[in-house]
């Protein structure tokens, strides 16, 4: 598609962010994530309508801080020293006015320390820094929003991280969001499981991130803990460990992976990854 557009718009189209990241360009994103800008002056209203229909329009005019956040998300890697959780929204149809109303609504709902980052014309991410909204509240909020705006969408509740690579986490969660069915609100781990089963590339990335760094002892612990139906006493017995030693191992595992293995979802996630590794 980009090739055809380049033929059509010639020098007025640019794929260089340093060129298109100005007011003079309207920026779009293709399905594979590639962005390009077309000079505003040569776009007719009809062409604008057609492009808005075919590709996602990217929002570019915001405060410097939002631009900085977005740049951090787009970099190959971007270490974050503070706790964060991302909530990803994707809507089916969203015009400019609705987009503005929606952003106001999100601002009133999330904690003031949160950042609302528009990504494209129908996608945005909220980065929570301090207080996180509860999943129930988010569910109610999303349903109420649907009945007011009468539009379909989906929401992915990202992983709560204490620190780490913000950009890598963002890419993974955005990929998981894409695989979610419409009208769904899902937590990170179940969505990621779905993705693991669909994409070998993601599966390998996840193994690399969660399983490879673990010592043999930790892997044995995951295996035994899941086989014992998350029963600590039984696992300790099978591993010939004192109950407290096992508790210590589980704590360390949670610290290492940032996945709570004592929860069913966490255990299922780590166990499945271990099986496919």
């Amino acid at each position: 598609m980009l090739h055809q557009l380049t033929v059509l718009f010639k020098d007025h189209l640019s794929t260089d962010p340093t060129v298109y990241c100005t007011d003079k360009y309207t920026v779009y994103q293709l399905a594979d994530g590639l962005r390009f800008g077309i000079e505003n002056t040569i776009l007719t209203p009809r062409e604008l309508d057609l492009l808005n229909l075919l590709v996602e329009r990217v929002v570019t005019s915001e405060s410097d801080q939002i631009v900085t956040w977005r740049r951090r998300l787009e970099q190959p890697s971007s270490e974050e020293a503070h706790p964060f959780r991302m909530i990803h929204f994707l809507f089916e149809q969203l015009d400019v006015r609705t987009g503005e109303d929606l952003q106001q609504l999100l601002t009133s709902f999330f904690h003031p320390s949160s950042w609302i980052i528009p990504l494209t014309s129908n996608r945005l991410v909220v980065i929570e820094r301090e207080d996180s909204v509860s999943e129930n509240d988010l569910h109610d909020f999303f349903t109420a929003l649907q009945s007011d705006f009468l539009m379909d969408g989906k929401v992915l509740i990202g992983q709560q991280r204490q620190s780490g690579d913000l950009a890598a986490q963002f890419r993974l969660e955005q990929a998981a969001l894409r695989e979610l069915p419409l009208l769904h609100i899902e937590r990170f781990l179940p969505a990621l499981m779905r993705l693991t089963l669909l994409s070998n590339e993601v599966r390998d990335d996840l193994i690399e991130r969660f399983i490879t760094p673990l010592e043999r002892e930790s892997r044995e612990t995951i295996d035994a803990f899941c086989r014992a139906n998350l029963n600590v006493s039984l696992t300790a017995k099978h591993l010939f460990l004192h109950r407290n030693s096992l508790q210590y191992r589980l704590d360390r595992l949670t610290e290492q992976t940032e996945i709570d293995i004592r929860s069913f979802e966490g255990a299922m996630f780590l166990y499945t990854l271990l099986l496919v590794a």
């Binding site: 149809q93 015009d95 609705t98 609504l105 009133s108 709902f109 129930n136 509240d137 569910h139 109610d140 909020f141 999303f142 349903t143 109420a144 929003l145 649907q146 009945s147 705006f149 009468l150 539009m151």
Partner: peptide
């Protein structure tokens, strides 16, 4: 015609309200 321009109001099965707003604002 876009959904919001159809002059239709809808009540969903999993009726939900904005948790951060009071009844009036909802």
């Amino acid at each position: 015609v876009a959904p919001k321009d159809r002059d239709i109001a809808m009540v969903f099965q999993n009726y939900a309200l904005y948790p951060h707003m009071n009844v009036f604002d909802n």
